[in-house]
């Protein structure tokens, strides 16, 4: 197949009412309406979805892998941000 020269779209599917849309993959399509049809055909063939979002991949601002140290490493030693860091006093009982 020739390399398609169509814009790339990210697809989000909500499997059931009450759940959040989840990223499932990407596809090529000429515009938003065609991307929705393609998403239906590619990603909901086995009854996976009740709702579809498509977003132009170009609209996504991704973090830079080079920022990894500054972005994410500082969180590694902040154990007090984990709920399990705190001991629940016996008086509180079951939470």
């Amino acid at each position: 197949m020739p390399e398609p020269r169509l814009p790339l779209w990210e697809v989000f599917i909500r499997p059931r009412n009450g759940l959040a849309h989840r990223h499932v993959g990407s596809l090529h399509a000429a515009d938003a309406a065609m991307a929705l049809l393609a998403a239906r055909d590619v990603y909901t063939r086995r009854g996976e979805g009740r709702s579809i979002w498509v977003v132009p991949t170009s609209a996504i601002q991704a973090s830079d892998p080079d920022d990894k140290d500054a972005f994410f490493d500082p969180a590694d030693d902040k154990v007090y941000r984990q709920p399990t860091h705190y001991r629940v006093p016996d008086d509180v009982g079951d939470m």
């Binding site: 197949m1 020739p2 398609p4 169509l6 596809l27 399509a29 393609a38 055909d41 590619v42 063939r45």
Partner: peptide, 13 residues
Amino acid sequence: RAPLLEEELALAN
């Protein structure tokens, strides 16, 4: 033989 992977699936569906 479809022109796009997406259409391959759409036509097969």
